[in-house]
Design a protein around this nucleic acid. Structure first.
Lengths: 234, 234
DNA sequence: AAATTTAGTGTCAAAGTAACACTTAAAATG
DNA sequence: CATTTTAAGTGTTACTTTGACACTAAATTT
């Protein structure tokens, strides 16, 4: 079998933008880089693609390494390939964005990486082009969540409508009328009301809901419309 | 400067899915592969990323090589990285999809590549994973064009509403009511009516329109809604 | 002059959207 | 135990958007 002998080869990496929601703010999980160059700087979790791996497998492996979680929402964001993006050697990176239930992470926590959650408006300076990756991931999250019910991935199994409400307000950084929001949510028919209430957040307590998994999986690929005047996203 | 000496390197390529519209059908431009493996098979136009190039620069260069065109609509589609996608040697490929005015191409034509336009429903078997790339590009075109006015990139400077109408019907493979379609189009305020008519397509002739470039550039990033019941795209 | 072909336009009912305010449940307070 | 506090939960209305639908107008061909 012939090879393309005259072409130069490059390193291939993946980096993960990991989103979580603690009930107050949208956050992303960052680590302190453990090796040179720029050891000690804040960075996305990433790693090199191994010889037998696809990009997606590499991203899953890296995600599992850091969070202990399997089977989380994972979507390719963009391939970054500027020749000088890593000063050490030409390295292309395929960025993946992932949505996890932050509480599951807390349970699985095995902190070999000095990982920390950062609110989106308090992201520290990041290595290489990771700042750009985060920015693009944010945009994509906004864009996609305006039409597809992906933000449920950030919530636990049981959640309340007020929780969802703050989540959407946080992602879009706007206020949403709770009556219209609630009506829209209910009318998707994705939610199944539970009998128990969540009592931590308020005196009255709010009913828990669960996702109807079957309908949810179908709805992931259809167009809902969660955001009024989606106007100028991305 | 330290290097990541233990990691394996891979080849990096870009491939272009080039869409055009001849007034009848949506087509893509394919070439006959000029080198092994699979020399002579139909393939997307592609090439290796050079040491000083970003992905986007590589895609522009390759596009220019084949079509002679500069400054065309170009958007990253997806990074393909399965270990065995190229049997010769591990090669990752970043696919770009591009929209060109097919008539400009005809003028610039310099056929060193045995390039041919193929209607979307008559795509031949393609090398490697190029068939998958084309499929994803189609999906993305549908998805994006449902909300953003990108299909104008496929038309010449002056175009008629009936032309636009067939274009949209072709992309979505549905019939669109021309009254509603026309109303929607006009109400975007992106179109400027010209005084001349196009007379080739019909006896009565249809007025030409041009894009209001300023409004168009703004509108590329906003949400319009060209397709009734976008229902289940992608 | 008549026929053919495609461009271009208007109405109306239904659905969806956004704006808006009060009631209710439960705990905390005095 | 009565009152206060806090956040949950719910309905109405005007407006806009959508989709279904059919006729007239312009120009060429016969």
């Amino acid at each position: 079998m012939r090879h393309y002998s005259k072409q130069t080869r490059v390193l291939a990496a993946v980096d993960c933008i990991i989103f979580g929601f603690d009930g107050e703010d949208i956050k992303i999980l960052l680590i302190q880089r453990g090796f040179e160059p720029q050891k000690g700087s804040w960075s996305l979790m990433g790693g090199f693609v191994q010889p037998e791996e696809s990009f997606e497998e590499a991203a899953s492996r890296i995600l599992k390494q850091l969070t202990g979680l399997d089977g989380v929402y994972l979507e390719q964001l963009y391939a970054f390939g500027n020749p000088d993006r890593d000063p050490a050697e030409r390295t292309i990176s395929v960025a993946y964005f992932t949505l996890i239930d932050i509480h599951l992470y807390e349970k699985q926590l095995s902190d070999d990486y000095h990982a920390e959650w950062f609110s989106l408006n308090k992201i520290p300076k990041l290595v290489f082009d990771h700042g750009l990756m985060v920015e693009m991931a944010r945009e994509k999250l906004k864009y996609k969540a305006a039409f597809h019910p992906i933000l449920f991935e950030l919530l636990p199994d049981k959640f309340t409508i007020p929780q969802l409400h703050s989540l959407y307000e946080g992602v879009y950084n706007i206020e949403l009328d709770k009556r219209n929001f609630s009506r829209k949510l209910i009318s998707t028919n994705l939610l199944v009301k539970q009998k128990e209430k969540e009592k931590a957040r308020s005196k009255k307590g709010a009913f828990y809901y669960k996702l109807d998994k079957r309908k949810y999986n179908a709805a992931l690929n259809s167009f809902l419309n969660f955001i009024p005047n989606p106007g100028n996203l991305k």
